[in-house]
Nucleic acid binder design. Structure first.
Lengths: 216, 216, 216, 216
DNA sequence: AATGAATGAGTCTTCATTCAT
DNA sequence: CATGAATGAAGACTCATTCAT
């Protein structure tokens, strides 16, 4: 048994047989509870019993929806990661101007960040870098998404270079650098998310990345 | 019992009583074995028995040197982290010219990276982002080091700004951005360290960071 | 988690929800098995695994009912001790005549002795005198019970002295002496309980204690 | 290997080869240290390592003198127990008058008590009642001593009965009762030994035992 | 279908004992 | 001979997973 992709919140569970709808709702409740607990205490410090109790289901019920503890975790992370990926790709594919595409890309990260704060928190506290180690297979999925994202970014840079908008540097490196800067800023924002609400903190990241730090 | 700082490889165990030297060697062997196993399988998937067997000691012997499993882990990570920190600070404090200081800072990361590849691997696969979660106290130490490093960097940028070498941006943001870029590049290098031997990959990071990506 | 008082044998598990009844039965079976093993081999020579196996439960099941090994032990001893205490106090408070109260006190010990032989055996083989040493806290409870009992006895002697029934000796010492005599006799009875069934052995204790040994 | 009887303090290690004398002194130091630690923390909470360290010997040295931990313990207890036994027998055999013999018996217990307080403390906190449980063999030795003592006492009572000094009760029961009273009083004295220095507390025990508690 | 009681494999850690030096 | 470093068996406890009701 391997769980189907995450189904949370904004999914259209509109016109489905009631049974199906109930199932989906239960699944969602379990995921929300698990997310909360994992983020709070860490994967290994949360037991299935705790999740079940907090979610007000029997443990058995969790196993209806998820093959095992790790699967539950995977769905939690991968679900958000894929949603994130889709949003990012959409932005990059919509805006034909490379410069504005990069700006939009940066901007959308902020939105996604605040929309998914709990998962982000979980991600940074346990996943960042293959939590389940190399042989879990699941971290590989995550790395693949990251790679696709960076490559997509690189392709935008490539166009921008051809159009003489960007300097003639290795596009992949540019993408990687952008990725790193955003990552560092998001981590910082996560440590104290309230502080950053006023002005979009990532705009600083954009400024530095795009303009460089040396005075001309 | 709280273990003294890590002793690995390059430590001068030159003129010590033989007993002391043996101890240090044993300690080192245990650390090396543990490092290997942790990096390969992950902290929770490695048992003390496994480490003992692999290192060809009795379990009891490990407890001669380390108070418990987490202590062994802590020594592994914090030992390298502190060494790293010292090296980085030395570089930043030695070079009075802010521009060259940043260049040196980037360069030294490469060296440290290749010198400590196994621990780096472990770091990225388990620690990055408070593995033991907020309540372990040990991840806090790690975050503190990171923070000190970034603040130190920021102070260099501040000077550079005053000297009109760098653009008048927030120094902390500049430091954070540099940190993120380096992080992303090191991670990339870790994924396939052979590829990058020819030319110091981080020099690309420097170029992008310093010069920005927009064509002027 | 701290286990509720012992539930053994004579407890009315009459009209309870079936689940509750099953729980109580299980708990009782575990207690009985543990008692048997502890009495036979001694606390430290019995492992939780052994208890579980002997009781035909999983180890985990024991931990459903008892917080830990010591808790299981505590319930075993303190449960009986408190029952014993209640019975003894009831006797002493019921009979207003001090002389008969003491007689009844002695008599009830016999009954309690035969009703709780296994625990008595355990008590004498491991507890008598603060088994877990001063720092367990649980032996303190036991000592407290003993002290209360002796003080209660002393108060009876005090009345008897005022009523000129007993010699004018220190009541506490009288109580202590009676306690000691009974203890010695019970211990003796425990060593070979069959021998003593014919005539209540403790009546000899009463005779000696009350009358003294010197011929007048 | 089974250790020879205890050798402590008052033993004449006068004219022995120096080697022998040294050995005996070492043995004694180990016993003293062990006694202290056992009494303080309890048998199971003291490790051989601790004893060795405290006594300033190597662990191996302890195993020169004692077959194993339990043997060390046994020597500690049985040594004192046998000394105690000898003293008690001597008193009972010396005094031909049964009444005075019993008085002397009671009196000598006080002396022995204060002379061996640490062992007494250990005895009451761990041994009282066959600590190592029925099959250790060593508690049997202890019980045997106890039994011999009571029987010896009984023989004195028997004579006293024949001489019409004591009431015509079962001599064994009388001995048992006396034993119990003394036990209870000693335990009480152990709980707070300072309190009892002024007047020999056991004399109260004697008064009660000999005279009984009923007013004539 | 949903439950949650029951399970027991697996883990860290201690410490009595051995034996090479 | 004395030492104490090294050993590894043993034990308490947790928790993911199963399955009878």
């Amino acid at each position: 048994m391997n769980s189907p992709p995450l189904t949370q919140g904004n999914v259209a569970l509109a016109r489905l047989p009631r049974r199906e709808r109930d199932n989906l709702r239960q699944r969602g409740e379990i995921l929300d509870t698990a997310l909360m607990l994992f983020a709070e205490k860490g994967y290994h410090k949360v037991s299935m019993q705790q999740i079940a109790k907090q979610a007000e289901f029997g443990v058995g019920t969790i196993y209806k929806f998820f093959a095992n503890k790790q699967d539950l975790y995977r769905v939690l992370i991968m679900g958000t990661a894929e949603k994130w990926q889709r949003a990012v790709f959409q932005v990059l594919e919509q805006e034909r101007n490379p410069f504005r595409a990069i700006q939009d890309y940066i901007a959308v990260q902020s939105e996604l960040f605040f929309d998914n704060l709990p998962v982000v928190r979980l991600y940074y506290s346990e996943i960042k870098g293959a939590y389940f180690n190399v042989r879990s297979g699941f971290d590989q999925d995550l790395l693949k998404l990251r790679d696709e994202r960076i490559k997509k970014l690189a392709s935008v840079f490539e166009i921008g270079i051809k159009e003489s908008i960007f300097r003639d540097l290795d596009p992949y490196h540019m993408a990687l650098a952008l990725h790193g800067i955003i990552d560092a800023f998001l981590y910082r924002m996560m440590e104290d998310p309230t502080r950053f609400r006023e002005r979009d903190e990532l705009s600083y990241a954009a400024e530095i990345f795009l303009g460089g730090v040396i005075k001309k």
